[in-house]
Amino acid sequence: MATDMKNKLTIRGLKLWYGDFEALHGIDLDILAGKVTAFIGPSGCGKSTFLRCLNRMNDRIAGCRVEGDVLLEGNDIYAPDVDVVQLRTHIGMVFQKPNPFPKSIYENIAYAPRIHGMVQDGPDMDELVETALRKASIWDEVKDKLQQPGTALSGGQQQRLCIARTIAVQPDVILMDEPCSALDPIATAKIEELMDELKQEYTIVIVTHNMQQAARASDYTAYFYLGDLIEYGETSQIFTAPSNQRTEDYITGRFG
C-alpha cells in the first residue's frame, strides 16, 4: 500500500463497544489523501459506526468505548491531549438526513466560521459564504434568497447546503453517511457530481447503500460485514474481481 504520508487517515486495530456489544472487531484501513473512499456493506454491519469514529462523533454516545488507533496524518486523534472540537474542524461530516439549522441560508454557512473566528462579519464573511455555496454548486439556486430559512429548500438543496456548511470550515476530510439516501435520483446525481469536484481539494469518505454510486463515484471501496472489514481496494478491482466470495455475493446482489 501507499506510503504513510499519502495516507490521510490510518486506522489500526480499531475496536468499538456499545456497552457490552462489540460493534467493530479490529479494523485496519488506510484512507488516501485526495481520493473518494466508499464504505459498503449490509445494514447494521458498522459502516456508520466506523465513520463516526473518524471524527469522534461517537464520543457523544453514553457507554461507547473505543480501542485502537486512528491517525490523522500521523497524529493519533484519540490521544488525551487532542481537542475533539478542533479535530472536527479538520474532519467534517455530512449526515444521512439533511439537517440544516432553522436559520437563514446565510447564517447556516456563517455560523461555524464565526464561531471559529475565521473571519469577521461583513464583506469577508459574505465572500466566504459565497465561496462555500459556489463550491457546493448551490450558489446559483440560492443567491437571491440568502436570508430565507434553510429549511425551506428542497431535500437535495438542503443536503448541498449542509455540504457547503461543512466546506466553509475548510476541513481536510469530509465524511458522508449515506448523503443521498433521502434524495431523489436527480438530486443524487448532483451530489455525485459535486463529490467529483470536491475531491480535488478534500479527502472524501462516503458510506453508501447504492452499489452504482460506489462504483461511479469512488476511487477506493471497503466492504464491511458484521463489524469486520472484509475487503478493501481500488473500486475497479473490487467491483470487477473481488477476491472474497462474500464481497462478490454482496456486490452482485445475491444478499444484503
Binding site: R60, T89, F101, V169
Partner: peptide
C-alpha cells in the same frame, strides 16, 4: 438530535451548539 450532530460536526463546542442552535430552535 440531528441539529446537534450537524453543529458539533462543524467543530463547535457543546455550549456553542446549545447557545446558537438548540436554544434558538
Amino acid at each position: 438530535q440531528s441539529l446537534r450532530d450537524g453543529s458539533l460536526a462543524l467543530g463547535t463546542t457543546k455550549a456553542e451548539t446549545i447557545r446558537h442552535i438548540v436554544l434558538p430552535a
